[in-house]
Amino acid sequence: MPTAAATESISAKLRKDEKDRFTLICDEIGTSPSNAIRMFVSAFNRRGGFPFDPSNPYGFSQETLSAMDDAVAGRNLSGPYRTVKEAMAALDEE
Rank of each mutant, 00 (worst) to 15 (best):
R75V: 05
Y81S: 00
S34V: 12
I37C: 14
P57K: 03
R38N: 02
A87K: 09
F52M: 10
R21G: 00
A12C: 10
A89N: 11
D70G: 07
L65T: 09
D20P: 02
A12N: 03
R82G: 15
F52T: 04
R21V: 03
G59K: 08
T64D: 05
G79L: 02
L77C: 07
N45H: 06
C26I: 08
R21H: 04
P33D: 03
I29W: 06
K85Y: 15
L14K: 02
G59Y: 14
F60W: 14
S42P: 01
L65Y: 11
S34N: 09
Q62L: 14
M1W: 07
T7L: 08
I37V: 13
L77S: 13
G74Q: 15
S42E: 06
P51A: 01
D69N: 07
L14F: 11
D27S: 15
A12P: 00
P80T: 02
F52P: 00
G30M: 07
T23W: 04
I10R: 06
Y81F: 14
Y81R: 00
M68Q: 10
P57S: 07
L24C: 13
T3D: 13
S55R: 06
D20I: 00
L24R: 11
V72F: 12
V41G: 01
E28W: 08
L91Q: 14
E86P: 00
E8G: 03
A12K: 05
Y58I: 11
T64M: 06
T64C: 08
V84L: 15
S78A: 06
D53P: 01
A67M: 08
I29S: 01
A89Q: 10
T3R: 15
S32H: 05
R46Q: 08
N76R: 15
K13A: 14
E18P: 00
N76G: 10
A5M: 07
F52L: 10
D17P: 00
A12D: 00
A89K: 12
G30D: 06
M68G: 05
E18M: 09
R75C: 07
A5P: 04
N56H: 09
E8S: 06
F44S: 06
R15W: 04
S11W: 04
F44Y: 08
N56V: 10
E86R: 15
P80F: 02
V41K: 04
M88N: 11
A89I: 09
A4N: 12
R46N: 15
Y81N: 01
D53C: 09
D17S: 10
S11E: 04
T64I: 13
A87G: 09
V72E: 13
D27T: 13
L14W: 03
M1R: 15
S32Y: 02
T3P: 05
A73G: 11
T23V: 06
A67Q: 03
A36M: 10
S9A: 12
R21A: 12
S42T: 13
M88P: 02
N56Y: 07
A12I: 05
K16D: 03
M1C: 12
E28Y: 03
Y81V: 03
